[in-house]
Nucleic acid binder design. Structure first.
Length: 352
DNA sequence: TATCCGTGGCC
DNA sequence: TGGCCAAGGAT
């Protein structure tokens, strides 16, 4: 149990640090403006939080600017076609987020008159809002004193209190520790301060403890090896798979398919492919699995790494026709997930 | 509860 | 270069 004096000290020091060191982010209302009563639009907070799930700030930021320019309100997003939103999300990864984003926008626009719920429990019921995102939107947009716990906060707590239990088993304890520090004063700034500290000072590698406002209280620093926290369970090896991707062209058009709505790259445009399996593909096998009979030529291969397996894709190219294809101009290939954009670029560049 | 689900930057 | 890492959620 954290003593009240320590709790107050940690809060005061971190909020003061945030006042001086808050990052300037496109979706953020800074501490000075918040003191003047300004609050971020819940739509923008929600959109940014969903984009930032398991995603770095530099990667998400351009997408946030593109989305908010094209769809300034939740109503604009809610009435957009699925294909347009999926295409705009292409390259950001974790495409279930985009499907849930639309479902959530339509729920808010249709059932709540365009206003997001004003309680954490209400937010938690929306598609794509789990414990973290519901707490974050509640704190940042509504100033609710929620317990916002992401990977940054887990790391800060693990170090501050030298938690020896490895992740992911330590998650409940780390969340409880973070919860003891939450207070009624400046909940939105508190949540963002903790995450900024984790992102810029209490970093995974090479933490900048000499710049940390909590260093005097940090048990891991006192122990001499703060960078070794949080402890982590051993990881499982990533298997490798092999497949064939087919680049079928008619002049400047390329044949694409729409992947099934769920599962890997669900709902996204894609190149037609074979199965992805452990064994490699011979020329004969690759021809037999092709979407059309044509003069297929081998035009190279690409490697790609997904979360739970790596992939080598042989590339076969031909000019011809096939049933059920979505014919797309080369300029439209930016609607493809990265793995297929990479494959298309390599395959179209390598002329035999 | 464990597994599935992307991507790009970094060292 | 391969493993690590990033503001997690759904099933």
């Amino acid at each position: 149990m954290t003593p009240e004096s320590l709790r107050q000290s940690l809060r005061t020091r971190l909020l003061a640090w945030y006042d001086q060191n808050a990052r300037d982010l496109p979706w953020r209302v800074g501490p000075a403006a918040r003191r003047d009563g300004m609050r971020a639009d819940p739509y923008r907070v929600w959109l940014s939080e969903v984009m930032l799930q398991q995603t770095t700030v530099p990667h998400a930021a351009p997408y946030f600017l593109k989305f908010t320019q094209r769809w300034p309100t939740v109503f604009d997003l809610a009435r957009e076609d699925d294909a347009e939103v999926m295409a705009a999300w292409a390259g950001l990864g974790y495409y279930a987020r985009a499907r849930n984003l639309l479902a959530c926008a339509r729920a808010v626009a249709g059932q709540h008159g365009g206003a997001f719920p004003d309680t954490e429990a209400g937010l938690r019921e929306l598609p794509g809002l789990g414990p973290y995102t519901a707490a974050a939107v509640g704190a940042i947009a509504l100033d609710l004193p929620t317990n916002v716990v992401d990977g940054n906060v887990e790391r800060v707590m693990a170090r501050l209190f030298a938690v020896e239990t490895p992740l992911p088993d330590a998650k409940p304890a780390l969340k409880a520790l973070a919860g003891e520090l939450v207070g009624e004063d400046r909940p939105g700034d508190w949540a963002q301060a903790l995450m900024d500290l984790g992102a810029t000072v209490c970093r995974p590698k090479a933490p900048l403890c000499d710049r940390c406002p909590l260093a005097a209280a940090c048990a891991a620093l006192a122990g001499g090896a703060p960078e070794t926290y949080p402890r982590k369970a051993a990881k499982v090896a990533r298997p490798h798979r092999n497949g064939v991707a087919y680049i079928l062209t008619q002049g400047d058009q390329v044949a694409l398919v729409r992947r099934p709505p769920k599962g890997l790259l669900g709902g996204m445009l894609a190149l037609p492919t074979s199965d992805w399996r452990t064994n490699g593909w011979s020329d004969a096998e690759a021809m037999a699995a092709a979407p059309a009979s044509a003069d297929w030529r081998s035009v190279g291969e690409v490697d790609h790494v997904f979360t739970h397996f790596s992939l080598t894709l042989r590339l076969l190219r031909a000019e011809g026709e096939a049933e059920g294809m979505i014919w797309t101009q080369r300029s439209g290939l930016d609607a493809l997930p990265s793995v297929f954009l990479k494959a298309a670029r390599v395959g179209l560049a390598n002329l035999l």
